[in-house]
């Protein structure tokens, strides 16, 4: 295996079912890390080109991620990664913030993006909300079956509605799954977070740079690789 194949083509057009994936030894994990680090480096090059502006809700999501990751990584020995993450959060905190657009809610459908904002922003490390976990699991399951996340789902049947091209929904879901994993340690969350991350990383760089200003995407990518690093016991 010479490259990380799971992001080599746009996974929203040609998905991967991950069945019987090939074993590539330690080298494979290095290729995975290279893949994520390469995208983090790409975002670095974009920061000077684009003003670092993000919406207030996105900022609240990233600050929640900061809060949860500080607890999760409190015993981590790799100071290089910790300082890299701190630096990304510090720069994020210097961002210009703008107001989000008003959203029209529909009582028959779940607005995926708005529900994810709500679940993440109200997430608590100490208080497990069963109803919230159920919604997260339903979204996770929808992704696992179709490898897509739709703008909305019917509340009664969870049938998808709208399109599946909104990259912000994938970003929010991956963050939601990472914070749920960091609290509950259930591998199902991390598993789907990795697949959603593959989907995002497989997108055209121009679209990614347009959608995710500053460190908005670099932060969850770095946290994901740090979680994987923490799970390595073979060295």
């Amino acid at each position: 295996m010479k490259k990380y194949i799971y992001c080599e083509t746009n996974r929203l057009i040609k998905n991967h079912n991950y069945m019987y994936s090939e074993y590539g030894g330690v080298k494979f994990l290095e290729l995975y890390e290279e893949n994520r680090n390469e995208l983090i480096s790409f975002y670095e090059t974009q920061i000077n080109k684009n003003k670092n502006i993000i919406s207030k809700k996105d900022f609240a999501v990233l600050m929640k991620l900061k809060n949860i990751s500080e607890i999760y990584f409190s015993n981590l020995k790799n100071q290089y990664q910790i300082s890299k993450l701190k630096n990304l959060f510090f720069r994020c905190e210097q961002s210009y913030l703008y107001e989000d657009e008003l959203v029209n809610y529909d009582k028959y459908n779940l607005n995926t993006k708005e529900k994810l904002y709500e679940l993440i922003i109200n997430f608590s490390f100490n208080n497990i909300e069963k109803e919230h976990k159920l919604i997260i699991y339903k979204i996770l399951k929808k992704f696992e079956i179709s490898k897509k996340l739709y703008q909305s789902y019917k509340l009664d049947s969870y049938k998808p509605k709208g399109n599946f091209h909104d990259l912000k929904i994938y970003w929010l879901t991956s963050i939601a799954l990472l914070i749920y994993y960091m609290r509950d340690h259930e591998l199902q969350y991390l598993n789907s977070a990795l697949k959603i991350s593959d989907t995002l990383c497989s997108q055209d760089r121009k679209n990614l740079a347009k959608e995710f200003r500053g460190n908005a995407h670099s932060i969850p990518l770095l946290i994901e690789t740090m979680i994987i690093e923490k799970l390595k016991f073979y060295r």
Binding site: Y6, Y18, Y23, L29, E144, L187, N191, L194, K195, Y234
Partner: peptide, 20 residues
Amino acid sequence: VNDMNYFIIHPVLKHLSILN
């Protein structure tokens, strides 16, 4: 009833499972 199913393992977790 509320327990979560496991879905096909991501290759990164599969490698960790094997190597660990």
